[in-house]
Design a protein around this nucleic acid. Sequence first.
DNA 1: TAGAGCCTGGACAACGTTGTCAGCCCGGGG
DNA 2: CCCCGGGCTGACAACGTTGTCCAGGCTCTA
Lengths: 378, 378
Amino acid sequence: MLDATSSYKPMGPRIPVTVTVADRTGHRIVPETTRRTDRFPGSRYGNRPTMKDVAARAGVGLKTVSRVVNGEPGVTPETERRVQEAIDALGFRRNDSARVLRKGRTASIGLVLEDLADPFYGPLSRAVEEVARAHGALLINGSSAEDADREQELVLALCARRVDGLVVIPAGDDHRYLEPELKAGVATVFVDRPAGHIDADVVVSDNFGGARDGVRHLIAHGHRRIGFIGDMPRIHTAAERLRGYRTAMEDAGIPVADGWMSLGVTDPERVRQAAREMLAGPEPVTAIFTGNNRVTVTVIRVLAEHARPVALVGFDDIELADLLQPGVTVVAQDAAALGRTAAERLFRQLDGTLIAPERIELPTRLITRGSGELPPAD
Amino acid sequence: MLDATSSYKPMGPRIPVTVTVADRTGHRIVPETTRRTDRFPGSRYGNRPTMKDVAARAGVGLKTVSRVVNGEPGVTPETERRVQEAIDALGFRRNDSARVLRKGRTASIGLVLEDLADPFYGPLSRAVEEVARAHGALLINGSSAEDADREQELVLALCARRVDGLVVIPAGDDHRYLEPELKAGVATVFVDRPAGHIDADVVVSDNFGGARDGVRHLIAHGHRRIGFIGDMPRIHTAAERLRGYRTAMEDAGIPVADGWMSLGVTDPERVRQAAREMLAGPEPVTAIFTGNNRVTVTVIRVLAEHARPVALVGFDDIELADLLQPGVTVVAQDAAALGRTAAERLFRQLDGTLIAPERIELPTRLITRGSGELPPAD
DNA sequence: TAGAGCCTGGACAACGTTGTCAGCCCGGGG
DNA sequence: CCCCGGGCTGACAACGTTGTCCAGGCTCTA
């Protein structure tokens, strides 16, 4: 599934060895079949004690240990004490892999996002984690790096682990590969972007409305030549924001010139170049609408070196935006709310409270800080 | 272990049911014992097919399916085709829980950090994830929220899942609870802060040297009344940075006045207040050294409203620092390098390449942008 | 004092997979 | 004609836990 590059073999062979242990009376010595040892050759290692070992040491039955470990009733305080003592002495820790196998649920959910390092996903992940924690579940996550194959690989790896649910920020646009999983009961919620060719819960921001309002804001401040720099339109959010831009312009009766739009550039150097081109020429733009936080930051840099003041509204809030000169006006989406809403919906699916998939759209908020209120300078 | 707040029971009971299936000849009908069903009452659900089901459908033995699934040699192309067909038809996906139980390794590592949403940890997580991915392992992570109990709870939950290794950014200062785990062979690396009362690998930044150099920088630019605002000294990094400040001042023969230091305030409002106090009074500081990114941001806000220019050097880089007026001079640490180094060490432990725990210190870098080069204004 | 019922504890199977090992079939050599 | 070897295949046990169910001992009551 994933490629390894060293001698670490996640699932290596084992060497069977015969050892002897005292039975629970402490008297007889019985041979035990294949016990694992030498699991970490050349390094510190050791065998983990099992409930059986604890039972033997405490002089009780296996199930009694299980009862103590899980706080089930029906164990004498004296017995419980002996078991607890053995647990502490051996450093026993329940093996949840076995538990999961038996119980059918893993108490963990998977989160697949685009890039853990992107500041937009930090609060989102955190929100998902908080909800998961409140429900007693752990979070397994991975970055798709905006690659559909890698997304699928990750999702399927998570399904193989039998996560109870999945929160996915899709990179690809076809999720039919998830059909068997959905049928098998894996709760699934898509966030930030909709799922492709599949009927599933979706939580997104109002990308269209937000962008439209941001551009309208610029128009309201007298701009007519407004540039748009955004991501590849195959990314749903980018397409929606572009649509918002077009709609606002059209509603205002402003025809969009060819040179005003830059789509699909992400590399900072090329964004820089695109911005410069819009600002040059005979009819330069007097305002720019940027399609995401990374583009916004790059454009801010370009505008800082530019002679004439140029108005700017960006999609996504950025830290310190209020301290720049001028402050950066943005259309902010609530990343934490996206994550929280998605995760809560996920657990409601697991509850059985939810039946039909739904699409939830969270509002965006225009935050005016100065850059979007600059008048056209021409 | 963790508290639940809804009816989602990660490990619910099951209802045994008797069903019948055709055997692999397709003729006889044999009854099968307790099969799970109705696992997700009131919601979409389904039983996941197992290798046994695939084997029955393909008319082959269980082990043959296993061989096909794992790409083991010794299966006729024709047999393989039949098995593959059954796999696709049933939507079979190997259950890694069972696999883990059998093989002893989970191909997953745990990452415990302070706050997923903190921009400092984004690149760190991402770097750990990249290394894990290169080794075929998944990443399970959680936030300790700077709470020692929660850290322990998380770490132990991860150990119960039998992660192969742990990367921990410690919140607590006593990690003896990890001793049984270490002995059992759980590879462990502490990052950003050292472990307490335990002998383990540690990867940290040169907090002391970085802070000392930052303060020296201010002194070199003529400052003598220099303030320090940092986190609680019980956090190792905070203590080290404080030590760097003290050392630089001492080396320069400058006695530190009481009002110049603010320790342990994190709440933005109180940081703001602390900064204002340093800047007021008869002998106000002419420069401030801030102990982490959050404090730096807050202090920048205070200085923006302040009449006289005040020099500033902050620990940790912040985005857009170069675009502020003046640009913010910082002591930058390489979060990605911390994560990468730690994760690589982790896998070398698992390789068996590493024997003795070590402490690795990564250098910091002073980035001058203007705010640290302002002369004293008094 | 005997019987009913409760409390405690343990034997056993099952979860879904993989390692071991033995058996089958086929072809070739003695 | 028989035996041997190699290539495929499948039966079976084991991984560590939990659910079921039963046994034994105790208490309580009639």
